[in-house]
Design a protein around this nucleic acid. Structure first.
Lengths: 360, 360
DNA sequence: CTGTTAGCGCGTTCAA
DNA sequence: TTGAACGCGCTAACAG
């Protein structure tokens, strides 16, 4: 049996209350007594039972998520996972005692986002998770929250200048480089033009992916020329128009890297074109559309980040910050998933059924 | 505030004990009373506080891991993560109240493994996690354990015929296909021979990877011919000897797929050869050696599974089986990670420092 | 400065 | 068939 506060108290010859004061670094303990308690903790190898502590405190962690509204499938998937984490009945273990609330604001709207952040802070939540837009007023709002002692985590798109406590998302520079490396290998030897379709360069993740991609392609040297970036505002219709023009007007088009959203439009353009299709197409995020395009060979690789992991991780990390506890960076690292036709995960799974005695 | 058993009791006009009996499906409640309680549960949206329940029960989950001994770096990494999960001080959240114990048995030794399984069952653990060897006596041992009500999860290498409750590892057929797909693209157009180095075909994961790889290569058609499989027994020295011979005697060698362990030997052979190196080399599992080889360009892609995820997942799933609870298959799905030079994760991270008030 | 006591939400005696 | 009372490990009043 693990030692408890009672064991510590007995070992140190003090009362429970004193042990508690020492464990929680509260004032009002003679330093000599403190040392005796600490020695007992060491000796017995005491580790606090966090679940019991939270139970006693009736502690709940109100965590607020702020996501972009709109029909970006990745953001909607993220929202679904946030809701699942917020639902006590569906919530996976390890995320106890959190009360999730959710606020959607128009995408790419910095003033609205800043306002939502400030408003979210007024409820004094234990933490705020936000998909950032890179703008001074947003950074200022984050700083204000932190000054008030509210930990902030950015999701998907970072805002390092704001001094946010944590970023839950992939290394987007590395993702861009990875896309570049894949494309180079997929095009090995051939020459031609490579196009990049972004959503908006005011999103830090898009800019970083672009930088990484350009860097990798530059290293390739060879015969690949990078066309000027196109911005489709993550809107399928706009992306479709851009892609159609690209396919029509760029006869030596060897590859397309779509680093934002709106891939539905890109896939439509690829499916409909009568021109020869580019040899390599790399896009971001797994959705019904990109999955199908991968299976049909319209797209060659999908780079992705797991929205479920991001939602869970943000909650775990914000909880840790709220309590000044440690977390495991390896567990919280969001991977750059590479999906090819061959390693697509199964479409969507429900919760497992409870174990039946028959083993069925 | 979430409703508690008290609220249910008041709402249904019964005592706490009766509520508890209904919630835990125990006998001794009139069916009319039972219905009243269930109605109250529905009405108030009650969800049991699992942490409090475990506290009350003083429930601990003894989980036993059985891993292969030896110097396979992946298995040693897995062992390190198992130990971390077993250490209350380092354990990440969500894995409370488990007591992990660990047993290493010689690799590829079915009788020893079966014996270890039976012995593990005698302590009546809440669950057993094992890296399986595919052999009848092992399957029989697993069935015996399950007959005694002990849930079993296989790790890394599966044993479906045993009826194990869960498999924590990648889809190895898909991994093989993925390797094949990558190799095909990396070799696009060129002709030549492709070699496969396995550890042992008595390991199901190795066989499955081989099948998937062969299948993907066959679909490729074209000019790639698959050489007869080499078995290196996951031993770096043997693998090195095999690889050296291969490089010397197969002038048209276009690619190598190493689907087992012992890659240290392969890398040495590649580094030392004077022959032209194969155009595409794909290996499994991230270790110091494979990481460095990737950075130096001796290896082109590493397929991997996250040992930390496997260790944590096995514990979560076995705990869920022990209690007859649900788990989230999406969270427990072990991904096929694809690492290229460009998306290598940082080498090894420690736990985060506790949050300091300064935000530093 | 230190100790006593009463819960947190739940499970489990034992008695009625 | 039902209920009252105690305890799990910890925290937070309130005394002393």
């Amino acid at each position: 049996m693990r030692p408890t506060v009672h064991d510590i108290a007995a070992e140190a010859g003090v009362s429970l209350a004193t042990v508690d004061r020492v464990l929680n670094a509260r004032a009002g303990v003679r330093s000599e007594t403190r040392l005796r308690v600490q020695a007992a903790v060491e000796r017995l190898g005491y580790v606090r039972d966090v679940a019991a502590a939270n139970l006693a405190k009736s502690r709940i962690y109100p965590i607020r998520f702020i996501l972009p509204s709109g029909d970006n499938p990745f953001m909607r998937a993220l929202e679904a996972h946030v809701r699942q984490v917020g639902n006590p009945a569906l919530r996976p273990g390890g995320l106890e005692r959190v009360a999730v609330s959710l606020d959607c604001v128009p995408p790419l709207d910095a003033p609205a986002l800043a306002a939502a952040l400030i408003k979210a802070g007024e409820d004094e939540p234990a933490g705020i998770a936000v998909v950032a837009v890179e703008a001074p007023e947003v950074a200022a709002a984050v700083r204000t929250l932190q000054a008030r002692g509210i930990p902030v985590a950015t999701l998907v798109s970072d805002l390092p200048a704001s001094g946010r406590n944590h970023f839950a998302g992939i290394d987007n520079m590395a993702a861009g480089r990875t896309a570049g490396g894949l494309m180079r290998r997929f095009l090995s030897g051939s020459r031609g033009a490579v196009a990049v379709i972004a959503g908006s360069l005011s999103l830090r993740d898009h800019r970083e992916r672009l930088d990484g991609f350009a860097q990798a392609l530059r290293e390739a040297g060879e015969g690949l020329t990078l066309l000027p970036v196109l911005e489709g505002e993550d809107d399928p219709a706009k992306v479709e128009a851009l892609a159609k023009r690209l396919l029509a007007e760029q006869p030596d088009l060897a590859g397309i890297y779509s680093l934002g959203a709106g891939d539905r439009g890109l896939v439509r353009a690829l499916a409909q074109t009568k021109m020869p299709r580019p040899q390599a197409v790399v896009v971001h995020e797994l959705s019904d559309h990109t999955r199908q395009a991968l299976e049909e060979g319209l797209v060659d690789a999908v780079l992705a980040q797991d929205p479920g992991h991001i939602a869970r991780s943000a909650v775990r990390v914000l909880r840790a910050f709220a309590d000044g506890l440690v977390f495991d960076p390896a567990q919280e690292r969001i991977r750059i998933d590479i999906f090819l036709k061959d390693n697509l995960p199964p479409a969507r799974q429900a919760l497992s059924d409870p174990h039946l005695p028959t083993g069925e």
